[in-house]
Design a protein around this nucleic acid. Structure first.
Lengths: 149, 149
DNA sequence: TTCAGTGCAAAGGATTTGCAACACC
DNA sequence: GGTGTTGCAAATCCTTTGCACTGAA
């Protein structure tokens, strides 16, 4: 939350009651969530003063503050986010059949990506690293289908 | 193009003049392109019969045929693609300031990702692997700005 | 001859934006 | 007390879809 205030200050923006409650609610989200999810969560907490537009306006600030991160995994079209502040770094494996998401940690991968960024003299800020494929169960299901036909 | 025909056959779809010209034009694209870019390219070739909707409908087939691949890098909101058929595998470094895109190849990264997928028993189909950060030039520019103020 | 493909225009859906009232600093 | 913020609704923009017509097998 301090990071958030710092970003606001740096951008000469103000901290408001609404921004505060949006930020704190976002931080309490588990897993991936969309702007709509967040609005629903806020309403569930009895916060009526959280309009879609306001949350849309707040998200980039939360990202900049390093509290949340945009993810690719999206149910449908909408952008999803996940909390990254004080969470362990991880990446995702996504099943292209059933949509199951497996999180994994790989220090080696992270190290390698850092090395690559350094090699090209980039200051690494964000990594998008997702592997898509068929999970074991879906592969089995497919084999059964083939065998039957 | 044979792959494309195979996909169409497998799905009991037909090869049409329009699909053919869309596919061949897509294969000739260099770098990242959007559906709109492709339509413009087609029109530049004098192909009038290539409507947006048609190209939108064709893209998933081209992806399935392994000719092109969806990319994350997008100028604005629209989905971008790039040719992958008979091109060397590569990933991207994207500058968050100037938008510059650097392609890099890393067999080690690829091998590691394959290993991770295997560990979780996923059959790897697609990798989304992008590093975002500030490139050297933008970092320098920023330093200059700070120094001046 | 029969489905599938195409053009077109209209619909859909996520996100953004203009503006008047309002709240921080 | 003057800016930045918010709610609201309308506007955008990419993408999808329904439909009548055309074309491939």
């Amino acid at each position: 939350m301090e990071n958030f205030r710092a970003v606001l200050r740096a951008r000469e923006l103000k901290m408001s009651k609404v921004r505060e409650v949006v930020a704190s609610c976002a931080l309490r989200q588990v897993g991936h969530f969309s702007v709509e999810d967040l609005v629903r969560a806020l309403q569930a907490e009895g916060v009526q003063e959280a309009h879609m537009a306001t949350v849309y306006r707040a998200m980039p600030l939360l990202v900049e503050a390093g509290l949340v991160q945009a993810t690719l995994i999206s149910a449908g079209d909408s952008q999803h986010y996940e909390v990254v502040f004080e969470r362990e770094h991880h990446d995702h494996l996504v099943c292209t059949s059933c949509g199951r998401v497996v999180e994994y940690r790989s220090e080696a991968l992270l190290a390698l990506q850092r090395e690559i960024a350094a090699r090209y003299e980039f200051e690494l800020e964000e990594r998008v690293s997702e592997l898509h494929g068929k999970c074991k169960e879906c592969r089995r299901a497919k084999e059964r289908r083939v065998a039957r036909s």
